[in-house]
């Protein structure tokens, strides 16, 4: 077991280092601006007094490294400073939105993961049949479509024309959980369509890869029935690739969520990021980017750790 713990610790350490490097990138990219943030925010026409006041407020009179350390120590305690545009605390502005985004992603994942893994395994078993080919074309089409295309089609047919679901996913605090699920169904469905296609294809590839191994043929030649070949011989070895597929696609959800939130006017962190970028509200942009990147890294890390833990060769060292 010592081996495994060592490997896991190593991965965790790597993840932390990458996160640190990314925080440096995110923070210091803003330093590339000509002049400084204050200049960029207030534009060419700003008076020297205004500039000086804003600089003082943002602590720009201090050296960059000090400001970075200050920002980082704040970020660790979820304090990202104040928005330049509204003056409100960044953590408060995006905190609730982040929860909304996580809810939407979880909603989509809860539908997509089981469906796509089952379908992926099924298509792998029926490989080269007509269903496999139809599934191939369908998933390829779904992957190639931009999220807003799928989103608007769903709005057009399921909201505008038939009125089955609301087109705009507005949330309020006193909604029941069922109501919440109903109102956010369309954005979730859009995400499901994209992610399911990805996951199905990857699951299929992973399973087919596995079915070509000699030990699967051996199991068949031992007279093991087909379902048992899959369940007993393929699946225990398929966990690592499947975990990878799931984590990769959850990470993909995080990115896809930005466009979907804009289409459905969903009050999530993606909307906040897009607004902040167009208003050049740098503290918000930095905070959002850091949160997205951290989630992304965390998921990849989870996948790595998952595949280490399910690898029989590592679990039972010599």
């Amino acid at each position: 077991m010592g081996d495994i713990l060592g490997l896991v610790a190593k991965r965790l350490g790597m993840g932390l280092i990458i996160l640190l490097v990314i925080s440096i990138i995110i923070f210091f990219m803003v330093e590339l601006l000509p002049g400084d943030i204050a200049q960029a925010v207030l534009g060419q026409g700003a008076t020297p007094e205004n500039l000086a006041a804003l600089r003082k407020e943002m602590g720009l009179d201090q050296p960059a490294v000090l400001r970075y350390l200050h920002w980082l120590s704040g970020a660790v305690t979820l304090d990202f400073g104040n928005s330049i545009v509204t003056g409100a605390s960044v953590a408060q502005t995006i905190g609730e939105r982040f929860a909304n985004t996580l809810f939407l992603a979880a909603y989509a994942a809860a539908i997509a993961v089981p469906i796509s893994i089952v379908l992926g395994v099924l298509v792998a078993l029926l490989r080269n049949s007509i269903f496999d080919r139809v599934a191939n074309v369908a998933t390829l089409t779904s992957i190639s479509s931009p999220e807003f295309f799928l989103g608007y089609i769903l709005i057009l047919y399921l909201a505008v024309k038939t009125g089955m679901f609301p087109a705009i996913a507005s949330l309020s605090n006193d909604m029941s959980f069922g109501d919440l699920l109903y109102r956010t169904f369309l954005p979730a469905l859009t995400l499901v369509l994209v992610v399911t296609a990805h996951m199905m294809r990857m699951t299929r590839a992973a399973i087919i890869n596995l079915l070509a191994s000699p030990y699967i043929e051996m199991a068949r030649l031992k007279g093991t029935p087909p379902w048992k070949v899959i369940v007993k011989h393929a699946l225990p070895n398929a966990w690592a690739p499947i975990i990878n597929v799931v984590a990769l696609n959850l990470a993909y959800l995080i990115t896809g969520v930005v466009l979907v939130e804009v289409v459905f006017v969903y009050p999530g962190i993606g909307q906040a990021l897009v607004d902040a970028v167009s208003k050049r509200d740098f503290p918000v942009v930095q905070a959002c980017c850091l949160i997205f990147a951290a989630t992304f890294i965390l998921l990849n890390l989870a996948a790595d750790v998952g595949s280490i833990l399910t690898n029989p060769r590592l679990r039972h060292p010599k």
Binding site: I18, I22, I25, I26, M29, V30, L32, L33, P34, A40, G43, Q44, A251, I254, T255, V258, L259, L273, V274, A276, V277, R280, F282, V285, C288, C289, F292, A293, F296, I297, N300
Partner: peptide
């Protein structure tokens, strides 16, 4: 390890204006 859309938004927020 930075999602592509997010990284693009970050860079555009910096190079998007006067730059």
């Amino acid at each position: 390890s930075i999602p592509s859309l997010i990284f693009a938004l970050l860079m555009l927020s910096i190079f998007g204006g006067d730059l």
